[in-house]
């Protein structure tokens, strides 16, 4: 696959704060690429530099497949994390306005169907639910049929069902061959949608690759969780590193049966026990030693 986006040595500081510290990556055409990290990791600043909204201190951004005659605005589509729309304007009027700003109304009916907007086209945009609003914002990002689409924290604040509906929508956009770049601090979202991710912390890339590959590189087995109050007793029995946080302790287990027998032999109560596959959140904690949702 060819690269749709190439980012090289991006740097950006705001006073003493280095928000983006020498970031480089490539995004393959037709893939979904995730920028992950806790709040304040530099995801949104990185994205806004790539989108051309914030000037970097140094670094390069290239779209190798963009025809020379095409403007960057026409080539990319953006869904912002917080976007206000004009007051007193309906969904349909907002779509028409943005379509006219690009001079492209021909996609509208397809887009209304794709993003399931037809039921509330005549509704004031201020009266939309969270999920409806995100679907409209995504439609605005796609109104001119761009090749590369940026989604900044697209499901923040949505209920679980609305998030899953949104994921389905993103999948169908992916199937159309669009290249997607998304930021999120939801690890399940990244794991579900992204073909490749970078994990950012304090403005730097700390890990990069395919989510499944990264997990198999770093973990072998399952993750076991118990109430944190049991830490003194568990640490006597379990030899692998134990992390603590959110009132739970957690450790990786290569042999669940063996580890559970050890715990029971030591009379440690298993009330509150949870076993799960390692996920990106576990990876982040392993790499940085702190929780992802800061």
């Amino acid at each position: 696959m060819t690269d749709a986006l190439s980012v090289k040595n991006l740097k950006k500081s705001f006073g003493a704060l280095t928000a983006v510290n020498d970031i480089s990556f490539q995004v393959k055409k037709g893939s979904c690429f995730g920028l992950l990290g806790p709040n304040g990791a530099g995801k949104t600043t990185t994205l806004e530099i790539i989108e051309g909204l914030v000037a970097p201190d140094s670094g390069e951004i290239n779209y190798p497949l963009k025809p020379q005659s095409m403007s960057r605005q026409a080539y990319i589509g953006i869904q912002f994390q917080d976007t206000a729309l004009q007051d007193h304007i309906t969904v349909g009027e907002t779509l028409n306005m943005f379509a006219d700003l690009y001079g492209k109304r021909e996609n509208l009916s397809r887009l209304i169907e794709l993003c399931a907007l037809s039921d509330f086209l005549s509704q004031d945009t201020r009266k939309l639910s969270g999920g409806q609003r995100q679907r409209l914002l995504l439609a605005l990002a796609l109104v001119h049929d761009p090749e590369v689409v940026y989604l900044d924290e697209p499901t923040t604040g949505l209920d679980p069902q609305a998030r899953r509906n949104f994921w389905q929508l993103v999948e169908s956009i992916k199937q159309q061959g669009k290249t997607l770049v998304l930021t999120t601090h939801y690890m399940d979202e990244a794991q579900t949608l992204c073909d490749e991710i970078v994990i950012l912390d304090k403005g730097k890339i700390i890990q990069q690759g395919c989510p499944q590959q990264l997990l198999s590189d770093h973990f072998n087995g399952h993750m076991i969780q118990l109430p944190e109050s049991l830490f003194p007793a568990v640490s006597q029995v379990i030899t692998t590193p134990i992390t603590r946080g959110n009132l739970m302790l957690e450790f990786a287990s290569q042999d669940i049966t063996h580890d559970l027998q050890q715990l029971m032999a030591a009379n440690i109560p298993l009330t509150g026990l949870k076993v799960h596959q390692p996920n990106l959140e576990d990876l982040f904690i392993k790499l940085t030693g702190h929780q992802l949702r800061g």
Binding site: E51, G52, L53, S71, Q73, A74, I76, I78, F80, D82, T83, A84, L85, Q86, F98, L101, Y102, G103, L140, H144
Partner: peptide
């Protein structure tokens, strides 16, 4: 108000 609440930012990404 448009500048503050991000309406301008959103519009600025179009060719206007």
């Amino acid at each position: 108000r448009y500048r503050k609440n991000g309406v301008l930012k959103r519009i600025s990404t179009t060719p206007i």
